[in-house]
């Protein structure tokens, strides 16, 4: 199952809850304000590095660009809207709104 998070980890526990509950190996997709979690050099970055040990993490490129998030935690992969659709086609999706 794909776990989708659209909230900033600095103001909302959605990503931490998603990562805690998601089964090992299931992918996490960060969209909208969720992409701030992928920014390198933040206080959350080490936590994302931990999450990456158990889950592939994707970020939505248009949301990164819109927020000037240009330095990513190592291992995070980018997708555009087309790649987003492919992820949802591959797996069922839960949205941690």
């Amino acid at each position: 199952m794909l776990h989708m998070v659209n909230k900033s980890p600095f103001s909302n526990s959605a990503l931490e809850e998603a990562a805690r509950i998601a089964s090992k190996g299931s992918p996490i997709l960060l969209i909208e304000d969720g992409v701030y979690a992928a920014r390198a050099g933040t206080s959350f970055a080490p936590k994302l590095a931990d999450i990456l040990k158990d889950h592939p993490v994707y970020v939505l490129t248009p949301d990164l660009k819109a927020r000037a998030v240009d330095k990513l935690v190592e291992g995070v992969e980018q997708v555009d809207y087309s790649g987003f659709v492919d992820l949802v086609e591959k797996d069922k999706v839960h949205s941690w709104v």
Partner: peptide, 17 residues
């Protein structure tokens, strides 16, 4: 436990938040 919830989620046709 989280692992049990994860397993249940994986079984679903759909999950609604």
């Amino acid at each position: 436990e989280a692992e049990e919830i994860a397993a249940l989620m994986e079984e679903q046709h759909a999950t609604i938040p």
